[in-house]
Design a protein around this nucleic acid. Structure first.
Length: 414
RNA sequence: CGGGGCGUGGCUCAGUUUGGUAGAGCGCAGCGUUCGGGACGCUGAGGCCGACAGUUCAAGUCUGUCCGCCCCGACCA
């Protein structure tokens, strides 16, 4: 991708509208722009990051046998009234009346919709278990949208739902997804904590939250350095296991998995015939990942004074090529040649073909946070050398094309 | 919804205290000089100063109402 042909509006200064680190960098690096509070446009770079996260999620969800589908965002209010959640969610739901005078909502989540779908199409234990998921925009009329993508009114979520004939099946799916989530967050380069809700002593609901530590995080997690992690419900701050004081960590909730049981299947009469012919409610679980929020969480964790430092798998591009003088034929020839070669090797490359001074290109490359940068100046072009810089530690290598290529492959493919 | 801050060319801001008819830097266009860390000089384009109402001879500036954005709180699958 040639920079001049793309749309990457970087900002030299911190925008007035942003306070949190991720919000500032999201805007400065040209990843998103705000339309109104809580609603953002994803620009080409932001979309690329989003797609990278989605690709990881799809790979890991598909790997555990989940199937992707896509449910409507537009829904009748009536289905929410059947479970009583129209009241629970209340003002959070965007509601309006359509031209047929029907009450319609924009989906804040999809338990009702998917349960209704499964109810109408699954009737036997032979069709279970089933794990379905989607990646879709959700709508919530938040009291106070904030921190850019961290709390938005329109945001992208991966929501998965499991359907089982018994609790053992639910446990198994829950476990599989729990592990898939660990792989997903790991691949996203995210540092995370897992908090447990109440342990289901009375067969009650079990849930785990995946929390990314971040200075601007809204949720506080209490952490015991010796034992496990717990949520900040108990104010005494004593570890329930060892009794030592726990420390508070600000976090962003990026994932939440939940054993639902039969709450929705009972309310919506989603039943199946078991192997004895008896009708039973389907046992459900639901599993969410805040996809757009993940972008913010990752930026919160991976940045320095110069800008973003993308983890390898999320970076909008794997390399940025910066010819320092676009009017110099030798420089451009060298840059163009390595660009084509890298593209031929299936690397995602951004070519900074702008007629800008070196300083501008350096600053922007650092701001964008692309893991590897190839710099080509007059000297290196003349001597047939390439200069490779690793964004994270500023490590620099000046060498022949072959050596640099080897280093790049090593960096990305181990 | 309560509390606080802010709203002035695309961006960051000054000007508001003490009303007199709009500025700077960046960016943009043109020319020249520069060219490995956000260059420099000259020229130029671009603003009904968030909106509406009021006070006044005169409002970016004072008053009122509203709108928008950010932050704190309440709330949050």
């Amino acid at each position: 991708m040639y920079w001049s042909k793309s749309f990457i509006p970087t900002l030299k200064e911190n925008p007035q509208d942003a306070e949190s680190v991720s919000h500032k960098l999201l805007l400065r690096a040209g990843l998103v722009r705000m339309l109104m509070a809580g609603a953002y446009s994803y620009l080409p770079l932001g979309l690329r990051v989003l797609e990278n996260i989605q690709r990881i999620i799809r790979q890991e969800m598909n790997a555990i046998g989940a199937s992707e589908l896509l449910l409507p965002a537009l829904q009748p209010l009536e289905i929410w009234q059947r479970t009583g959640r129209d009241k629970d969610l209340g003002e959070v739901m965007f509601k309006f009346i359509d031209r047929r005078k029907r009450a319609v909502v924009l989906g804040p989540t999809h338990e009702e919709i998917i349960t209704d779908l499964v109810k109408n199409n699954v009737s036997s234990y032979r069709h279970l278990p089933l794990v379905l998921y989607q990646i879709q925009s959700k709508f919530r009329d938040e009291l106070r949208p904030r921190f850019g993508l961290i709390r938005a009114c329109e945001f992208i979520m991966k929501d998965a739902y499991s359907f089982d004939k018994d609790n053992q099946g639910l446990d198994k799916n829950y476990q599989a997804i729990y592990q898939a989530y660990q792989r997903i967050f790991q691949r996203c380069g995210l540092n995370y904590l897992i908090t447990e809700a109440d342990s289901g002593v009375m067969g009650g609901k079990v849930s785990h939250e995946f929390m990314a530590p971040a200075v601007d995080g809204e949720d506080i997690v209490l952490v015991c350095d010796k034992c496990v992690v717990h949520k900040a419900n108990n104010e005494d701050q004593k570890c329930p296991r060892c009794g030592l004081a726990m420390k508070k960590v600000n976090t962003i909730e990026v994932g939440h998995i939940f054993k639902l049981g039969t709450k929705y299947s009972q309310a919506l009469e989603a039943v199946f015939s078991d192997d004895q012919g008896a009708l039973k409610p389907i046992i459900m679980g639901c599993y969410g990942i805040g996809v757009s929020r993940l972008i913010s969480a990752v930026i919160e964790q991976h940045n320095d004074a110069c800008g973003i430092i993308w983890p390898k798998e999320l970076a909008p591009f794997q390399l940025i090529i910066s010819p320092l003088d676009v009017t110099n034929a030798q420089v451009m020839q060298s840059a163009e040649s390595i660009y084509q070669e890298l593209k031929g090797l299936s690397f995602e490359v951004l070519f900074d073909d702008r007629d800008e001074r070196a300083g501008v290109k350096f600053k922007d490359a650092e701001l964008l946070g692309i893991p590897l940068q190839i710099i080509i100046g007059k000297e290196s072009a003349k001597n047939n050398l390439l200069e490779l810089i690793i964004r994270s530690n500023k490590e620099k290598l000046v060498d022949s094309k072959d050596i640099v290529l080897r280093k790049i492959k090593e960096f990305y493919h181990g």
